[in-house]
């Protein structure tokens, strides 16, 4: 028993019984699957759960697989477009919600911008499928445009968040000072707001890129035949024989995401103040 007189250390979660065990368990749950995935991507055998020695053959196979090449190029192209468009729209939305005096309905607008985060993705997917089917039959327009629109839409809130955070951290007094020094609103935007906003915009764009790259549900519903992206291609593979080629592709995707995270971190350190 601890005597009541003894001075207690300040409350710390770390000193609670079982803290270490639970924390350890969480880390295992988070990283064990990823580590397994990466390790088995170097498997020499053709089963994803039976280790038969080290080899790079599945990377070679993935690299040479035309379907994978095709899906990769489509994924990157789609993610790049969606990230550019959604970042432009998100920047405008962020400017509209932070650089104007508070107005009625501002909260409603926040909710609308963040709507893709709340609505179940499958609902959005079905809704888009129906809408796009109607448009297609009415206009006869085919192609990637539907995927680009869909991805742009659900990437907006992800691009919006860092841009808005950056804008809220930026003192409005700098724009006031520019106006005081004879800058028109347009000049103020180009010379002051935008240069200071860049780190937020880059962060938003990269986040949107990763989110688009990763999407399965909406893509699966919206895509026409022959419009496989990397994730939908992998999903398709699951219905056949699974080889460590899937692991290899996943590992490369993981590497790409981690690279983006590192760049984001670097930008934060360099410019975020």
């Amino acid at each position: 028993m601890i005597s009541p007189i003894r001075k207690r250390p300040p409350f710390s979660l770390k000193s609670q019984p079982g803290f270490g065990t639970i924390a350890g368990l969480c880390f295992v749950m988070l990283y064990a699957p990823i580590i397994t995935l990466v390790v088995y991507s170097f498997n020499a055998g053709k089963y994803i759960s039976m280790w038969e020695g080290f080899s790079l053959q599945w990377y070679v196979a993935a690299w040479g697989n035309e379907a994978v090449q095709d899906a990769t190029i489509r994924s990157l192209y789609l993610a790049a477009q969606a990230s550019v468009y959604s970042t432009i729209l998100a920047t405008m939305a962020a400017l509209g919600t932070t650089r104007t005096p508070p107005f009625r309905g501002l909260t409603a607008i926040y909710a609308m911008i963040n709507q893709p985060l709340m609505v179940p993705e499958i609902v959005t997917a079905v809704a888009l499928l129906i809408l796009f089917a109607m448009i297609k039959s009415l206009t006869g327009i085919q192609g990637m445009v539907y995927l680009v629109i869909a991805h742009t839409a659900f990437c907006i809130p992800f691009a919006y968040l860092p841009i808005r955070a950056r804008l809220e951290g930026m003192d409005l007094i700098l724009e006031t000072a520019a106006a005081d020094l004879y800058a028109t609103p347009w000049k103020t935007f180009w010379r002051i707001t935008l240069p200071l906003l860049w780190p937020g915009i880059i962060a938003g764009a990269m986040l949107a890129f990763v989110i688009s790259l990763d999407d399965v549900v909406i893509t699966e519903f919206v895509k026409s035949s022959g419009q496989e992206t990397l994730p939908t291609y992998m999903l398709g593979q699951l219905r056949r024989v699974i080889t460590p080629e899937i692991n290899a592709i996943s590992t490369l995707l993981l590497g790409l995401s981690m690279l983006v995270v590192c760049v984001l971190f670097f930008i934060e350190r360099k410019f975020g103040k």
Partner: peptide, 29 residues
């Protein structure tokens, strides 16, 4: 609007443009 008045302000916390040099700040107006 402020940009059409021949009046300039020295702000309480200076409000210098952080992404410009001293000379660029001065030449802005």
């Amino acid at each position: 609007p402020p940009n059409q008045r021949s009046v300039n302000t020295v702000f309480q916390n200076y409000a210098l443009f952080p992404h410009m040099t001293v000379a660029k700040n001065i030449s802005f107006g």
